[in-house]
Amino acid sequence: MSLYWEQHLQEIREQLLLMSSLVERNLGQSAKALMERDDVLADLVEDEDSEIDELEKRIDELVITYISTHGPMARDCRFLITASKISSELERIADQATTVARRARDLNKHPALKSLSNIPVMAEEVKEMLRQSIKAFVDRDTDLALEVIGRDKLVDSEYKETARDVESAIMSDPETTGRELHLLTVAKALERAGDHATNIAEEVFYLYKGQDIRHVKLSSL
């Protein structure tokens, strides 16, 4: 049954999906700008961030308007709160992508480093986590949401490994210190983006199961 007010909920859903696709693209392009030393791509990521910021505000406006005018209950209420939180997490992932793009541009001013350590793997992993968390949202798939949460440990260990590689590289060639620290910042940004994707998965779980699993060990679920 299609109800007149369901189109408002659908609009919020569509805006959220549009935002997530832009964020996923920005995340991928920021990593590509780093790996392919592409300043144009890095500039593009930074330019598109403002569009993502506007979408976050638009989604919040739609959510507040709906709550004020419709008095939503149960799953509708959970959806609206979740939509607002997910858009906030997406905006933060986009900010991390911007950080990666800026550091890529800084690195591009200097000779290439011998190795980018785990950065390419991390970038791919985080992008996949984001994609899967949104898929879980669309497909109402709480098992997939749990899977995303489980993957965050992998990203964390890749970050630690990158930090060790950076340390070794600086020790073996102190002249690369500045560039290696840029690389460490990129790794940290990707690790944080993974955390935000995990948060989205937790929100998706709450949306469909009504159970708050934040700060809960996966093994206890």
Partner: peptide, 18 residues
């Protein structure tokens, strides 16, 4: 009841779906 009702009929009613 208003955040996580146990029955689908309750949820459908309070969210205005029937």
């Amino acid at each position: 009841v208003f955040t996580k009702p146990a029955q689908q009929q309750t949820e459908d009613y309070i969210t205005g779906r029937f």
